[in-house]
């Protein structure tokens, strides 16, 4: 359970860093790079969460006898 907690904090860290970079780049005037950075951060977090969800659904299937 603890290794999942570290992944949780990684996601929060990515989110905070992306938000900071976005605002910094906006001050520097580079709008489109800021958007790209936000998108990349979003995609990384999406992959992590989707892998977790796939694992969750697999566990649910095995526990709740979803053989049908």
């Amino acid at each position: 359970m603890i290794q999942d907690a570290t992944v949780l904090f990684q996601i929060a860290g990515i989110g905070i860093i992306v938000a900071m970079i976005h605002s910094i780049l906006k001050q520097m005037g580079k709008e489109e790079i800021a958007q790209v950075v936000t998108l990349v951060g979003f995609i990384i977090v999406l992959f992590i969460v989707l892998n977790g969800l796939a694992d969750l659904f697999q566990q649910i299937k095995s526990v709740f006898l979803f053989q049908g």
Partner: peptide
């Protein structure tokens, strides 16, 4: 904390938290 800047990432964090808690109970 994340909700102001990036509400989408905050929602993903909420999904992951629910996921962790359920995986602990399975």
């Amino acid at each position: 904390l994340l909700k102001e800047q990036k509400s989408s990432l905050a929602f993903m964090l909420a999904i992951f938290t629910g996921l962790i808690i359920f995986l602990a109970l399975i």
